[in-house]
Amino acid sequence: MIINVHAGHSLKCRGASGLLDEVNEDRAVKNRVIELLRANGHTVYDCTDDVGKTQNANLRNIVRKCNDHKVDLDVSIHLNAGGGTGTEVYIYSDSSKAKDEATRIAEKISNALGIRNRCVKTSTKLYVLKKTKSPALLVECCFVDNAIDKVKWNADKCAKAIVEGILNKSVNEHPTPKPQSNTSNALGTYMITASDLKVRTGPGMKYRVKTHNELTKDAKAHDYDRDGCINYGTRVTVSKFDGDWAKIPSGWVAKRCLKKV
């Protein structure tokens, strides 16, 4: 499958808080969901927005990222508030192609955490469900302001339940990651130091741009940027890179999109 996943709200326009903090917890769930889906062989795009300063800006950013990809499913991860208890999953209408996944996710989270199953609900007002082009669902994992939900909360268990609901099968909690190939025909995002881009061809200052194979033949470590592309290269200080290319200082690294032929 090809799947969009994002955590709700942003670091600058935070969601609900109480006994749990929605932004912190939904990102923990989101990260684990993506990890498990990828480890089980599926393509996942992280469409989370961390920079939107208002609710409207945050929602527009998320939907724009989601609609940049043609996927089988859009998954929005939230935590609820308002004094209730349990988990529920929203879809746009009863005819949504995401209804089966939503039903399974609600049941599996309820069972995994031991909290009430509030089942699947429909809403034509939720922006993400209304504006995304692919089948979409929005998970309200539990209530941040309910003591029972707080005590039973476990982000890893919740993430595993979501993945099993999507895939309709049990998954290994600690799967062996599938090896990534450097010979993919897909367009990849390769993270390479600027000095790696050229090779001297003769005396003086004559250079040429390295080929795709030359740039990636020694790639060993890899990670994903926020658009789901693989970042290759071990010379970059990973602790300084948070996945947002726009924040990288000018001249520090170069981003090249190269298609293998």
Rank of each mutant, 00 (worst) to 15 (best):
R256W: 09
V71R: 05
S184P: 05
L113I: 01
M1S: 14
T103N: 05
I115H: 03
E173R: 12
V139C: 07
E22W: 08
R60S: 12
R14W: 07
T183A: 15
T122Y: 04
T234H: 02
L19Q: 06
V171Y: 02
I3A: 08
K97Y: 12
A155L: 03
D218R: 10
S10T: 15
I105P: 04
H174M: 10
L215M: 14
P175N: 03
V199F: 01
V253C: 13
N31G: 14
S250D: 13
S17L: 08
H174F: 05
T237W: 11
M1L: 13
G202S: 15
V29F: 03
R226G: 04
R27C: 04
E107N: 10
A219G: 12
D149W: 05
C47E: 01
A155K: 13
G84P: 10
V75A: 00
L187A: 12
T87H: 03
S76I: 00
D49Q: 08
G41I: 06
A106W: 01
K70H: 11
I230G: 00
V23S: 09
C158V: 13
N4G: 00
S195F: 02
N80F: 01
A155E: 05
T122S: 10
D145T: 03
P177K: 09
A81K: 11
L20F: 11
L167W: 03
K255N: 11
S181C: 06
N80G: 02
K150T: 15
D156F: 14
G165C: 07
C158R: 00
K259S: 04
V63S: 08
N213W: 07
E214D: 01
A112P: 05
E25C: 06
A246M: 11
R226H: 13
L11Y: 04
Y45I: 09
H69L: 01
C47F: 01
D242G: 11
V151I: 08
G84H: 08
N61G: 15
I34H: 03
A16T: 10
L197V: 15
N111Y: 02
A16E: 04
D218Q: 03
K210E: 07
G8A: 06
V236A: 12
A28H: 01
T201N: 06
E173H: 08
D74M: 05
P203L: 14
R14P: 05
R60D: 15
P179Y: 02
N61M: 11
L79A: 01
G52H: 07
Y92M: 07
V253W: 04
